[in-house]
Simulated scan of single mutants.
Amino acid sequence: MTLALDRKTANLDALESEAIHIFREVAGEFDRPVILFSGGKDSTLLLHLAIKAFWPAPVPFALLHVDTGHNFPEVIEFRDRVVAKYGLRLVVAHVQDWIDDGRLTERPDGTRNPLQTMPLLDTITEHKFDAVFGGGRRDEERARAKERIFSLRNAFGQWEPKRQRPELWNLYNGRHRPGEHVRVFPLSNWTELDVWNYIAREKIDLPDIYYAHEREVYLRDGMWLAEGPWGGPREGETLERRTIRYRTVGDGSCTGAVDSDASTIEEVIAEVAASRLTERGATRADDRLSEAAMEDRKREGYF
Rank of each mutant, 00 (worst) to 15 (best):
H213L: 04
K146N: 12
I204M: 02
F61L: 03
L115R: 07
V132Y: 01
F185W: 14
R89S: 15
R144K: 08
L3R: 15
G250W: 10
D80R: 15
R7W: 09
E141Q: 15
L88Y: 04
D67T: 03
R299P: 03
D42R: 04
D97K: 14
V272D: 03
I199M: 00
L5P: 05
L168Q: 07
P58D: 09
F129V: 08
Q164F: 03
D194I: 09
D42P: 10
G174W: 04
H127P: 05
G157A: 13
L63Q: 10
L46W: 02
E266M: 05
A53H: 10
T105R: 14
R242E: 04
E140P: 14
G222K: 05
L88G: 02
R32F: 04
E271C: 06
G39K: 03
Y246F: 15
I244H: 10
Y172I: 00
R7F: 13
V91W: 13
E167Q: 02
D194H: 12
P108F: 06
E266H: 11
K203P: 09
M294I: 14
R297N: 11
G174R: 01
K85I: 06
N173V: 00
D130C: 04
D221M: 03
R137Q: 15
P161G: 01
H176K: 13
V195Y: 00
M118G: 03
V82F: 01
L225T: 06
T105S: 15
R183T: 09
M294H: 08
I149F: 00
A143C: 09
A257K: 04
A262G: 03
D42K: 07
W196K: 05
Y172V: 00
P207E: 02
R215I: 08
R148I: 00
L90M: 11
A285N: 09
N71A: 13
M1A: 15
P119C: 05
E25C: 08
W230S: 10
D80V: 11
G256D: 07
V83H: 04
E271T: 11
D259P: 15
F150P: 00
K85T: 14
R201I: 01
N154V: 07
Y198P: 15
D205I: 02
I265Y: 10
A19F: 08
R245H: 10
R299Y: 00
L289P: 00
N173I: 01
G39C: 08
R148G: 00
T111W: 01
D139Q: 02
F54P: 12
F72V: 06
L168G: 04
A27H: 14
P161T: 01
E74P: 07
P207Q: 03
T255G: 02
E216M: 09
S253E: 07
W224K: 05
S38G: 01
I99Y: 08
E267H: 07
L3H: 14
H65M: 11
